[in-house]
Each structure stands twice: as structure tokens, then as C-alpha cells.
Amino acid sequence: MLQITNVEKTFNKGTINEKKALQNLNLTMNEGDFITVIGGNGAGKSTMLNMIAGVYPIDAGTITLDGVNISRWPEHKVAKYIGRVFQDPMRGTAAGMEIEENLALAYRRGKSRTLKWGVTSAEKELYHEKLKVLGLGLEDRMTSKVGLLSGGQRQALTLLMATLQQPKLLLLDEHTAALDPKTAKTVLELTEKIVEENHLTALMVTHNMKDAIRLGNRLIMMHEGHIIYDVAGEEKKNLQVADLLKKFEEASGGEFANDRMMLS
């Protein structure tokens, strides 16, 4: 359903800060795939997600989603098909607006914004039900400003917002990395639940190797802007963190994985 073919992206081309972020990137995702993405700093994980989402234009190659070529689409157009949760909990929600207003904005993802009233009462019931599922008590605070919520609550809300309108593809960019371990666990459990219940196709970048092995049906490892290891099914389930580290060393020619990866 998602087909990435020979994609390349270089930042600051022709300057001293030139950085080849993606090189010869190829990936085929099937309907219902939940892929976890790991790799060292600067491996191109986030860049890959940003390129799919149309944040920056790619330099070469093609990206197609369900047969539609979205390679050069701007971000707001790709958004019709894609739900996103960012690493920074502040980025996914509008602090100065109410919880229900945020949800209403997300409910209209990819639709044209008309002069109809922004939040209908029928919707409010839907949001109440959906918020209840999060188990954070947000259903009783629907008219509170989102700025009053904690980082974990905001991230859970963002997750709900990203999936309120069923996306063809869900992009999770280290969405638990900025949270404390306990909250991160809660948000991760919610992620599993939402992905499973809605049969979503998802790409999740993480620094936590255990999570990467435990979650999803497929795991890819990136290095220097392309995929160096792609494993699925039984083989993935039986992986150990040590295996991944070894793979990483092999593929990167004996380099050690960075500290953050070692520790997690």
C-alpha cells in the first residue's frame, strides 16, 4: 500500500553543512503492516517519516500510497491520508484551544473547512466516547484548554486525533520519547490498542529496542539513509536486543550503536 522507491534527500546541498539524509531508500508496506523503525542518530528515520508526510519535497525517487503518487504533494494535501504523532507533545495539539475544538479540527482532517459550525453536538457525544477509552478522565474536561494538560495527556489526545478520521497510514515519530517511563508505557499501550482495533497500517520510529521487537509485525533498521535490515513474522518475534546490536555492528561495519540504543 505504501511504496517508497529510490528516494533521496540531501539537506543544505552544496554547502559545508551538506547532509545526505536519505539515499536509495526503498520500502514496501503492506496493508495492515505495523512496522517499527530503529537506527542510530542521523540514520534518516525521522526524515523518512517527514518525506512520506510531505514536510519537505524529496530530491529524487517516488512515494506512492495506495497507487497514488504523492511524491511531490505538499504536507496539507498528504494529510488527508496520513495521521501523525510527533515526538514533542506540544506539537500535536493547539494549547490555546479546547479539547473538543482540537478533536473537531482533527475530525475534519483532509476535508474542506466550510462555514458550518465548528463542533456539532452529535460530534461531542462521539468525542466523549472516544476520550473515555483513553482512561485519562479527559471526557469530563472537554471544554478545558489543552494547554492545561500534561505531556502524556496531550500525547494520548494527539494519538486519538491522528486516528479519529481513519488514516491510510499512521506515522509515529518517537512519540513516547519525551515522556516519563510510566506515561510512555501508558501511551504505548494505547497505541497498540488503537492500531489493533482500527486495523491501522503504521510506521513507528523508536529508540527503545525492546519496544521495537515487542510491537508490530515487522521491524526495519536504518543506517545512513537507507534500510539495512528488514525482518518480519516469527523471525522478528524471536529477536533479542543482542541480535539487533550485532546486526547493527555488522551492517555499519563494526561501528558501535550509540549509547542511547545500548541502554534501552
Binding site: A53, P74, E75, H76, K77, A79, K80, R84, F86, M90, R91, G92, T93, A94, A95, G96, M97, L105, A106, R108, R109, G110, K111, R113, M161
Partner: peptide, 13 residues
């Protein structure tokens, strides 16, 4: 309020 968010929600900012 949050331009990144609303762009990700499909609005041409």
C-alpha cells in the same frame, strides 16, 4: 495557535 498541527491536519496554512 499551532501551525504545525493544523498543517498536519490537512489545512493549507
Amino acid at each position: 495557535n499551532n501551525i504545525d498541527m493544523i498543517r498536519a491536519l490537512g489545512v493549507n496554512t
